[in-house]
Design a protein around this nucleic acid. Sequence first.
DNA 1: AGCCAGGGCAGGT
DNA 2: ACCTGCCATGGC
Length: 300
Amino acid sequence: MGKTVKITFDKEYFDIKDTLYCGQLFRFRKAETESAASGGHLVFSTDKCAFCFSDEKKTVVECAEEDEEYFYDYFDLKRDYDKIVSAAENSGVPALKIAASLGKGVRILNQNPEEALFSFIVSQNNNIPRIKVIIEKLCSGAGEEKIFYGERFGENGLKYRAFPSAAILAQMPESFFTGTGLGYRARYIKGLAEKIAAGYSVSALSGLNTEELRKELVSIKGVGAKVADCAVLFGFHRADCFPVDTWIEKVYKEDFGGALTDRKKISEYFVERFGENAGYFQQYLFYYKRSLEKELATKR
DNA sequence: AGCCAGGGCAGGT
DNA sequence: ACCTGCCATGGC
């Protein structure tokens, strides 16, 4: 009844907590079956599910046999992160060096472009815990029911909901979207769903170069420069890209001594400076800054 | 009560 | 091309 396989990978450049808690995805949670110490997490992407954990040396991803290739690519396991982390550590920027050595277990995921775009529209002027709740409600209310037969979840497996198809979302009433807590973003989500249901393909944009891609995405209602950059980086894996949000603005001012105030110009500054590594460095810096702040908050 | 969160839009200069 | 007010929601 649904065999699973395990992907095992060295932990140094693939730590499950770093990868999940660095802010690039919103569909994951601690597994209910786990003690706090063992750190097992469930990760959901499109209609798929994986159970993941890291021990001292290895990170293990358990998924359905037919999804092995999908998750191998999803976690970007074909890429050599040694070079990327080294470049950050040798950048000459103290904060970046610290951020990269603390966050070297981060991998930039290859998320589904459509799901990433929907997700980062939800993220605008919002905070991560709320974004997770809203997306979960979109899935539970409109996503197809699925079952994951992981070895810790018994004969009946674990029930979960897929990310909803645009076709189904497009048919949901206005009240459904506002009921998820989307607020004024409800019409953006519904609008994108209708656009896709009418034939628009987000994943088909992968043929465009990064600049064309960004320009195309910004033409969608509810998608500005920052949301587009996140979709470009996390959905299309274009690393010559540097999303600037409130946290990165802080990094720019406090750790790079920057004087620019326009987010678009700040983004351009980082892309020019770090080129093909910009997206990775952005993620190290975001994770570093945000977790530092959270740690300070809990220590008071 | 007011500020903030992985911002963007519309309308004005 | 730049500036401002406004936009839902909930945690602190």
